[in-house]
């Protein structure tokens, strides 16, 4: 028996929004410790890694580990039927070929359930090596989304250069070029608005804008985003999900032809 309950369907809706642009379907691996998802996008350029810890749920029970392959468009249709403040419970029997989503309104006057067929997905898991990153940038997630959206208008590739002074995002294309520089702030009063940089050595890497835009669909999950970079390894874009877990996106850097 698997059962996981969240008092706010809004969180699950946001999690789904954060992955469904990159993934058509995904396997949710459920165990005692929580729910995990690891999947590459269709073109195998980026990787999504989601962890929802069991202790972050309002109720969590997983008698036997199970993998639930879900079509994310179908899951999205179902979650649209929930109000943000509904309680949501995800249920499945051991070895089941369906999963059930139960939505309960705050006053319990409306209870709905939606059963969805599970899929057998042949998904391969990748081993992600531990990396000591040369640069770790933390900034407001809304600011990152804004920069990516603004610059993507002018080119397909963004160059991110990080030094101890700050981080520079640059794009060039047919129209011309654009640069956004963010200085490290010492804004101790408003930590949420600060830009902080931990740098071992400077890094310059190029990335496809379209993937960064997809990653920023996670912005509603967290006020902060963390970018971790080292030369010649994938960028990690991480959003913490308060008291529940995190979503990390890995993106292979572009290299010179």
């Amino acid at each position: 028996m698997f059962e996981a309950r969240l008092t706010s369907a809004a969180t699950l809706k946001k999690v789904l929004e954060a992955v469904k642009e990159l993934l058509n379907e995904a396997s949710f691996d459920c165990s005692d410790s929580g729910i995990q998802l690891q999947a590459m996008d269709n073109s195998h350029v980026s990787l999504v890694s989601l962890t929802l810890r069991s202790d972050g749920f309002d109720k969590y029970r997983c008698d036997r580990s199970l993998t639930m392959g879900m079509n994310l468009a179908s899951m999205s249709k179902i979650l649209k039927c929930a109000n943000n403040d509904d309680t949501v419970t995800i249920k499945a029997q051991d070895d089941a070929d369906t999963v059930t989503f139960v939505f309960e309104s705050k006053k319990q006057e409306k209870i709905s359930d939606y059963e969805m067929k599970l899929m057998n997905l042949d998904q391969e898991h990748l081993g992600i090596p531990e990396t000591d990153f040369s640069c770790v940038i933390r900034m407001p997630s809304v600011e990152f989304a804004r920069i990516v959206r603004d610059l993507a208008q002018f080119g397909e590739t963004v160059l991110i250069c990080c030094t101890k002074e700050g981080v520079k995002f640059s794009v060039s294309g047919d129209v011309g070029s654009a640069n956004v520089k963010l200085a490290q702030t010492n804004n101790f009063d408003k930590e949420e608005e600060s830009v902080s940089i931990e740098m071992q050595e400077p890094v310059s890497l190029s990335f496809a804008c379209q993937y960064l835009i997809s990653f920023t669909k996670a912005t509603p999950l967290s006020p902060r985003v963390q970018l971790s970079m080292s030369s010649n390894v994938p960028l990690v874009v991480e959003y913490e999900i308060a008291e529940l877990g995190y979503i990390r996106y890995y993106l292979a850097p572009k290299i010179e032809d």
Binding site: L47, L126, P129, Y250, A252, K254
Partner: peptide
């Protein structure tokens, strides 16, 4: 520029 796959950085389990 060339876009490599993520699998060229991470090993398959």
């Amino acid at each position: 520029m060339f876009q490599p796959a993520i699998t060229s950085f991470f090993t398959r389990k």
